[in-house]
């Protein structure tokens, strides 16, 4: 234990995701030893980021305005919503340039171990967006892991309503790689999820 404020700083870093006690201590001492204008800049950024950046009131994506650029873009289809766990997933899907609809960021996945239940996700907001019938298709693009699958199952039950198509992204082999390099688990899953080829 260090004295007062130093320990507080270490504890604060330790609360950040992916940072254990050792790293927290290393970062704290790095900051103590850094030229003061560098840390001032960091402190400023932290404040500005909190002030300026917020979550889109419609979809939950990060933005510097009330709503994000995607929700404001009139060229995007208003009939389709792609549901993702995090804002960084929006960036990933946008990179594909395949999807021209809107997004909904849940803010995580259902995971009792992490204390996250449906009420902690932006599910109520999603239901509100679907209420007026404009949206006719929901694509669930939660992560292909256990928690993502559980969240997808929960949502697909909730979204079971007339006039709404619900689909789930296929999970399978990473593209661009060779089949021989896919690990056994992924390849095994892909086998199970195989589809008929139209001919």
């Amino acid at each position: 234990m260090y004295e007062g404020i130093v320990q507080e700083l270490i504890d604060e870093f330790g609360r950040l995701p992916g940072i254990g006690p050792k790293s927290a201590q290393r970062i704290a001492f790095h900051i103590l030893q850094t030229e003061s204008h560098d840390t001032t800049r960091l402190a400023e950024l932290l404040t500005i980021v909190r002030e300026k950046v917020r979550f889109c009131e419609i979809c939950g994506n990060v933005t510097e305005h009330e709503t994000c650029s995607i929700c404001r873009d009139p060229r995007r289809s208003q009939a389709t919503i792609c549901v993702v766990e995090e804002a960084k997933d929006v960036v990933a899907i946008e990179r594909t340039r395949e999807f021209r609809g809107l997004y909904h960021v849940l803010g995580g996945a259902i995971s009792p171990i992490d204390g996250v239940g449906p009420d902690d996700l932006r599910i109520r907001q999603l239901m509100q967006r679907l209420a007026d019938g404009t949206v006719t298709e929901v694509i669930i693009a939660t992560d292909p892991n256990l928690e993502g699958e559980a969240t997808a199952t929960y949502l697909s039950r909730l979204l079971h309503q007339p006039g709404l198509t619900v689909s789930r992204l296929a999970s399978g082999l990473p593209v661009g790689g060779d089949l021989e390099y896919a690990d056994e688990v992924t390849l095994g899953r892909a086998f199970e999820g195989r589809r008929l080829v139209e001919n």
Binding site: I110, S111, G117, P118, L146, A150, T153, Y154
Partner: peptide, 30 residues
């Protein structure tokens, strides 16, 4: 199993809430 056990524990300590039980079904299915 770990997720489900955690959920059962929190359902027990918080009293059984509706939305928690509906997620229990999701874990049951998995």
């Amino acid at each position: 199993v770990r997720q489900r056990n955690t959920l059962l524990k929190s359902a027990r300590s918080a009293g059984v809430k509706g939305s928690q039980l509906s997620t229990l079904e999701v874990w049951d299915e998995r």
